[in-house]
């Protein structure tokens, strides 16, 4: 049982890790992330990269929807902006990954700020529709601006490179995606220890009160859109480098819904929630396949019968989480931690 959690300064209270145990666990986690690609199969490595990209994008959406309370269905569109920017730069310039990715993130942020303009007048479902319209518009641009986007055929990228090293396989991409995901998560976590992050939360909790408190709504709402889109742009850029092909069909509307579902299942307004949601949404469909793989040698018809059931089970799992833990996976995680902190006593 953990006893005593006294803080002697505000700085200590604000710290990211409030105990040595946390620091040790985080260090071990980072070590595990570093060692993982040396031991993992190509399949697991691929999934880890997918999770890394999903975590970045979900965190971006969490900043906007979870922390600022602005619903967005434009995440796939913003990812597309990042993806196409990186693809275009890859084909027309010799830029290495960092500046290309940064350009993708910044352009996406700029588009995000534009799309965020209606957020001052509309909220809730109306804003969702406004961002949906933006997503449709961006999709139209991806399809029709053929000289730049390659039209319906899309663009095939050359492998990314960094410090002269070509990033032509998942192993190397992992060492870009995972550190970036960690850095961007830390960035997001730190954001909510600053005035800006707290302003976002104030707007989410009651925008009129926030304005009365002296928070300029337009500035902070647009800032939130910009930041969220920046994260999406970076995730989209990584997606483009990872698959080395972008087409309008790479960023469908269902992708926006995927990320919205991820942060709802994981826990809105919690960085850990975004991470857990992204991991859940990416890995659970693959985990559910394992049962089919096990049964198939004994019952060859299993894939035909069990594959559609998998979708039903996945859907039921999401509904079950929403019913039994509306605060998401992050809250379940907190309860588990609390159990161990207080063991052998019960809350």
């Amino acid at each position: 049982m953990r006893i005593g959690d006294a803080k002697q300064s505000y700085l200590a209270d604000e710290a990211l890790w409030t105990s040595t145990t946390q620091q040790v666990w985080f260090g071990l986690f980072l070590l595990a992330l570093f060692v993982f690609p040396f031991l993992a199969t190509p399949y697991l490595l691929y999934l880890a990269c997918l999770v890394g990209i999903a975590v970045i994008s979900a965190t971006g959406l969490n900043i906007l929807t979870g922390y600022t309370g602005l619903i967005s269905l434009g995440q796939a569109g913003f990812m597309g902006v990042g993806g196409y920017t990186v693809a275009w730069l890859s084909l027309h310039t010799d830029l290495s990954l960092p500046p290309a990715l940064l350009a993708g993130g910044l352009l996406s942020a700029a588009i995000g700020v534009l799309v965020g303009l209606p957020s001052l007048r509309v909220k809730g479902l109306y804003l969702a529709i406004a961002t949906l319209a933006a997503s449709v518009f961006l999709h139209f641009v991806f399809m029709e601006w053929t000289p730049v986007t390659g039209g319906t055929k899309g663009l095939s990228l050359r492998p990314a490179h960094i410090f002269g090293i070509p990033l032509h396989n998942d192993f190397r991409m992992y060492f870009v995606i995972m550190p970036l995901a960690v850095v961007m998560l830390l960035g997001a976590r730190n954001l909510f220890r600053t005035r800006v992050g707290r302003a976002f939360i104030a707007i989410r909790d009651r925008d009129i009160s926030a304005e009365v408190l002296g928070i300029p709504l337009l500035k902070y709402k647009l800032m939130s859109f910009g930041l969220s889109s920046f994260y999406a742009g970076i995730a989209g850029g990584l997606f483009a480098y990872f698959f080395r092909v972008v087409t309008p069909e790479s960023f469908p509307l269902s992708m926006s819904i995927f990320y919205l579902a991820a942060i709802i299942v994981g826990g809105m307004g919690s960085i850990l929630g975004g991470v857990l949601g992204a991991v859940f949404m990416t890995l659970v469909p693959e985990l559910l396949k394992l049962l089919t793989t096990v049964v198939t040698p004994f019952y060859p018809e299993a894939p035909v019968i069990m594959s559609p059931l998998r979708g039903v089970v996945f859907g039921a799992l999401i509904v079950a989480f929403l019913i039994f833990e509306p605060h998401g996976l992050a809250e379940i995680w907190r309860r588990i931690r609390r159990f161990f902190h207080l063991w052998p006593f019960r809350t």
Partner: peptide, 21 residues
């Protein structure tokens, strides 16, 4: 040896990696 993909590119690639592994 096959895997269901749901007709999603990322899942198809995952299936390929799994089978090729």
């Amino acid at each position: 040896v096959m895997e269901d993909t749901g007709y999603l590119v990322d899942r198809s690639v995952a299936a390929y990696k799994k089978i090729a592994g």
